[in-house]
Deep mutational scan, measured.
Amino acid sequence: MTYKLISNGKTLKGETTTEAVDAATAEKVFKQYANDNGVDGEWTYDDATKTFTVTE
């Protein structure tokens, strides 16, 4: 399945996607992506749209 990340960081804003077997796997990928880009904030997940959002 395709999962989307919306980043509302102070230094990184935008969207990216990943293919993953489940939401937990996608979350690990996205949290590593955010960490690699210096984004640390509040996370939410919408199962209906398969979208994670991180806001700093």
Score class of each variant (00 low, 15 high):
Lys13Ser: 10
Met1Phe: 15
Val39Thr: 04
Thr25Phe: 06
Lys4Leu: 08
Gly14Gln: 13
Met1Tyr: 15
Phe30Trp: 01
Thr51Asp: 00
Ala34Cys: 14
Trp43Val: 01
Met1Val: 13
Thr2His: 07
Asn37Val: 09
Thr11Leu: 12
Glu15Val: 15
Thr51Gly: 01
Val39Glu: 03
Met1Asn: 13
Ile6Thr: 05
Tyr33Ile: 09
Asp36Asn: 09
Gln32Lys: 13
Glu27Val: 04
Phe30Met: 02
Thr18Gln: 05
Lys13Asn: 11
Met1Lys: 12
Ala23Arg: 14
Thr11Ala: 10
Val29Met: 10
Thr11Ser: 11
Tyr33Lys: 03
Val21Asn: 10
Gly14His: 14
Lys13Val: 12
Gly9Leu: 14
Asp36Ala: 12
Thr17Ala: 07
Leu5Asn: 02
Thr49Cys: 04
Thr25Leu: 06
Val29Arg: 10
Thr53Ala: 04
Asp40Trp: 15
Gly14Trp: 14
Thr17His: 09
Thr16Ser: 09
Val39Asn: 03
Val21Gly: 08
Thr2Ile: 14
Val54Phe: 14
Glu15Lys: 07
Val29Gly: 03
Gln32Asp: 07
Phe30Pro: 00
Leu12Trp: 14
Ala23His: 08
Glu27Met: 14
Ala23Phe: 11
Glu27Ser: 06
Lys50Pro: 00
Lys13Thr: 10
Asp22Phe: 02
Val39Leu: 14
Trp43Asn: 00
Glu19Asp: 10
Trp43Thr: 00
Gly41Gln: 02
Asn35Trp: 14
Asp40Pro: 03
Ala34Lys: 01
Phe52Leu: 01
Thr25Ala: 13
Tyr33Cys: 04
Gly41Met: 03
Trp43Gln: 00
Gly9Ser: 12
Thr11Asp: 08
Lys50His: 12
Leu5His: 01
Leu12Glu: 06
Gly38Lys: 07
Thr25Trp: 07
Glu42Leu: 12
Ile6Pro: 01
Phe52Gln: 01
Glu42Asn: 09
Lys50Gly: 05
Asp46Ala: 03
Thr17Tyr: 14
Asp46Gln: 04
Asp47Arg: 06
Glu19Thr: 14
Thr18Asp: 01
Glu27Lys: 07
Glu42Gly: 05
Val29Ser: 05
Glu42Tyr: 13
Tyr33Trp: 15
Thr49Tyr: 05
Ala26Asn: 00
Val29Cys: 09
Val54Asp: 00
Glu42Arg: 08
Lys50Gln: 09
Asn35Asp: 11
Thr55Asn: 09
Ala34Leu: 11
Asn8Gly: 05
Phe52Gly: 00
Thr53Tyr: 13
Gly9His: 10
Ile6Met: 07
Thr51Glu: 03
Asn35Leu: 15
Met1Arg: 12
Ile6Arg: 06
Glu56Asn: 07
Thr49Trp: 03
Ala48Phe: 10
Thr55Phe: 10
Ala23Lys: 13
Lys10Asp: 08
Lys50Thr: 03
Lys31Met: 07
Trp43Tyr: 01
Thr55Tyr: 10
Thr51His: 02
Asn35Ala: 15
Ala23Ile: 07
Asn35Thr: 13
Leu12Cys: 14
Trp43Pro: 00
Asn37Met: 14
Lys28Ser: 09
Thr11Lys: 12
Thr11Gln: 10
Leu12Gln: 08
Val54Asn: 01
Val29Pro: 00
Phe30Ser: 00
Gly41Val: 03
Leu5Met: 08
Gln32Tyr: 04
Ser7Asn: 06
Trp43Arg: 00
Lys28Cys: 10
Lys10Phe: 11
Lys28Pro: 01
Thr44Val: 09
Lys10Gly: 11
Asp46Gly: 01
Glu42Lys: 10
Val54Pro: 01
Gln32Trp: 05
Asn35Glu: 14
Lys28Gly: 06
Phe52Arg: 01
Lys50Glu: 02
Ala34Arg: 01
Glu42Thr: 13
Thr17Gln: 10
Thr2Asn: 06
Tyr45Asp: 00
Val54Ala: 02
Lys10Ser: 11
Thr2Gln: 10
Thr17Ile: 10
Ala26Met: 02
Tyr45Met: 00
Thr16Phe: 15
Thr55Ile: 10
Leu5Ala: 02
Thr49Ser: 09
Glu27Cys: 15
Asp46Val: 04
